[in-house]
Design a protein around this nucleic acid. Structure first.
Length: 712
DNA sequence: TTAGGGTTAG
């Protein structure tokens, strides 16, 4: 569903930074280890730790069932379907405040012990037999016929050996069923657990549930291993509600989860985005003496990363330090990924170096995460240095890492490096270029405007049968549009339609930008016809705004409709292109209306920044047309303020940026030229590139000279 | 993998 379009008022409130939590979890163990995260300052003051209770929790819960004890948890926390955005991370629940009352455990302090078993001495012939079963026909009859030849009477150990060896899941399941129906052995939990593991491989959640019900019906107890297998299978099948259902059932039947089951369910809530529930469960566990392990921290780290919640990530570090857990490779990988998602490339770099210093060797996932972060941050030097280190140290590579390196090259504009890498991939045995690799190359050539190479690649893909997806087509269309090769563009678009590619909002945005480029040429109609197929409403809107008779109210209404239906990430580009289209047609007033509407609906946050000392216009995320419109608007406003003799700051600043992306330069030049046209008193800053500066005196005298000129 | 939990791509 489309995300509702907020107004600036909504944006103001949702963007308001709140201190979401303070750390209340006590620092039980002070360690001397220094996490890099110390460089991030925390304003939160740790509250007093919960007073430890000397008595044994069991004394308090003797007379109540576990499900009664946990009723508040099961009924309130676990079943809560809504996520309160304004969670207060460490606010203790009121039920825990009384320090004289023992806290109820929510998880067992010890992991479930495994029953020991050993295989019979006739291991070899049984293994051979199990192998034969594996190779037998896949029908039930063939399998049962093969079972007739079992070399010896089945014992518990023999049955386990065979169950553990059988694959695929169909055979494991058939064998379990055979043991049960033959009444050869008393059915034990472990038989079911081993079978469930096999079924999980095959993502057979329905069958796992059937087995669980069979256990219940026949009085075979479900233990922590059973529940964690059920939960992890539900997770694997994206059946999170089922995972929650079985977890709640476990509590209701009085079985206490151990740390494995507990972290499995934490992960379920994390994936559901139920951050508050996860924190509540985590802190409840902590408050009753649980020492979480690296897996738990990985779950928490991933959750905060998905939420882009840097405070949350910091909390994970603080908790790890407080508990005395050293991050392992997976925890580092998760937290690196999380840092990237939270938009903290500097901290990610620090964390990566800390990891290397601690002696942990990065794997493909680590390097993929870090290269991606450097690429998105446009840190080409760091990316290239890391790439060099990867080669020197012989760190592991896989095809995802190769493709990530290609994407990084696209992000920072490294064309030759990408070409070399792409050639290496073609020559490699295990990392042949796939659809992702080709798309990355198309992205590079597309951004660079190298039509010949992009089209050559396109032909190569067609010849080799490499699938081209909507993103690949978008890159290609963008490339052809920038090169004004409109006939080829239409041809490529038609091929995409023939291949059943469904145009998404990004492709429409790309076509919209080509419309603005094609204006005034004979090809404008051809491009519009493509856009008409992809998004007819957008074309109707273009016609509407181009008609000078259309009222502002109508434009506003239709604009709202267009933007509400568009994906959030394309709304600003849409608005930018529409403004460009109006300016190309000399519809300046309409351009200003659209900029106003874009601002009203929060598409340009941070366009104006004011402090007592300086006012800044930041047009770095605007198209040329939109930036010039914003500049005009600003000059009009400043003129009015000067004339009204209101308070002004010392300094005025306009930021265009320098086009950190090698492929996206030009705004700076157009902006400078427009400033000259307006004769506005801004000068390119010598210290800060991509910045235009004017003093209050310059501005005031400019306004006064304009007024004098107008009067004479 | 000889019964259970966590990490990589527009």
């Amino acid at each position: 569903m489309a995300t509702p379009l907020p107004t600036v008022v909504d944006v103001y409130f949702t963007d308001t930074k709140r201190t979401r939590f303070s750390i209340t979890t006590p620092c039980r163990q002070k360690t001397n280890r220094k996490f890099f995260i110390h460089c991030a300052t925390s304003n939160s003051t740790p509250e007093a730790p919960p007073t430890p209770t000397s008595d044994n929790n069991n004394n308090n819960k003797k007379n109540t069932s576990l499900s009664d004890q946990l009723a508040p948890l099961a009924n309130k926390t676990l079943s809560s379907a809504t996520r309160d955005q304004s969670y207060a991370l460490s606010k203790p629940k009121s039920t825990w405040v009384n320090p004289t009352k023992a806290k109820r455990s929510v998880l067992s302090s010890e992991r479930q012990k495994r029953a020991t078993y050993s295989y019979s001495p006739q291991l070899r012939d049984l293994k051979r037999f199990a192998q034969k079963l594996n190779e037998s026909g896949s029908s039930e009859d063939e399998f049962l016929a093969c079972l007739e030849e079992i070399p010896r009477p089945i014992s518990r150990e023999n049955a386990l050996l065979i169950l553990n060896t059988l694959k695929p899941w169909q055979k494991t399941n058939l064998f379990l069923n055979w043991i049960r129906t033959q009444n050869l052995l008393p059915m034990e939990t472990i038989f079911y657990n081993v079978t469930m593991k096999s079924l999980r491989f095959g993502k057979q959640f329905g069958l796992i549930e059937d087995l669980a019900h069979q256990m219940i019906d026949n009085g075979v107890p479900l233990d922590n291993i059973t529940y964690s297998t059920i939960i992890s299978c539900a997770k694997k099948c994206n059946l999170y509600d089922k995972a929650v259902h079985w977890f709640e059932r476990m509590y209701k039947t009085g079985l206490m989860p151990d740390e494995v089951t507990y972290s499995a369910i934490l992960d379920v809530y994390a994936r559901l985005g139920k951050v508050e529930e996860v924190i509540s469960l985590y802190e409840r566990g902590r408050a009753t003496g649980w020492k979480p392990d690296p897996i738990t921290f990985s779950v928490l780290g991933k959750m905060f990363g998905e939420a882009g919640d840097y405070d949350g990530i910091r909390y994970v570090f603080q908790e790890m330090e407080s508990v005395g857990v050293q991050p392992n490779l997976v925890v580092y990988n998760t937290l690196l990924e999380a840092m990237g998602k939270a938009g903290k490339p500097g901290f990610a770099r620090g964390l990566f170096e800390e990891m290397i210093e601690s002696g942990i060797v990065p794997n493909e996932k680590t390097l993929t995460a870090v290269i991606k972060i450097y690429g998105k941050a446009r840190w080409s030097r760091d990316a290239l240095e890391l790439w060099q280190r990867m080669k020197e140290n012989g760190w592991p590579m896989d095809f995802i890492l190769y493709n990530t390196l290609l994407n990084m090259c696209a992000d920072v504009g490294l064309v030759e490096e990408a070409e070399t890498l792409f050639r290496d991939m073609k020559q490699s045995v295990h990392c042949k270029p796939d659809s992702w690799s080709y798309t990355a190359m198309l992205n590079i050539y597309g951004s660079q405007g190298d039509v010949d190479k992009a089209m050559k690649l396109f032909d190569e893909m067609c010849k080799l049968g490499v699938e081209l997806n909507v993103m690949g087509f978008t890159c290609l269309i963008q490339c052809l549009g920038r090169a004004m090769e409109f006939d080829d563009l239409v041809r490529v678009f038609d091929i995409s339609v023939e291949r059943g590619i469904k145009p998404d909002d990004r492709l429409c945005g790309c076509l919209l930008s080509v419309v603005s480029l094609s204006q005034g040429s004979n090809d404008e109609e051809k491009v519009l016809a493509c856009l008409q197929q992809a998004n007819p409403k957008l074309v109707a809107f273009i016609h509407l705004i181009e008609d000078e008779k259309t009222s502002f109210e109508t434009v506003k209404e239709e604009f709202k409709g267009i933007m509400s239906n568009a994906a959030v990430e394309v709304r600003r580009p849409f608005c930018n292109c529409l403004i460009d289209i109006c300016r190309n047609k000399d519809l300046l007033e309409r351009a200003h209306e659209l900029l106003y509407l874009g601002t009203l609906y929060g598409l340009y946050p941070g366009l104006h920044n004011k402090t007592v000392e300086e006012w800044c216009l930041d047009v770095r995320s605007l198209s040329v047309g939109a930036a010039l419109t914003a500049l005009e608007e600003w000059m009009w406003t400043l003129t009015k303020i000067v004339k009204r003799e209101e308070t002004l700051p010392e300094l005025f600043l306009a930021q265009t940026g320098t086009g950190a992306h090698k492929f996206a330069q030009g705004l700076n030049i157009s902006f400078a030229s427009h400033l000259r046209k307006l004769a506005a008193p801004f000068k390119q800053s010598e210290e800060k590139v991509g910045c235009f500066i004017a003093s209050r005196e310059d501005l005031v005298s400019w306004v006064q000279s304009k007024s004098t000129a107008a009067a004479t």
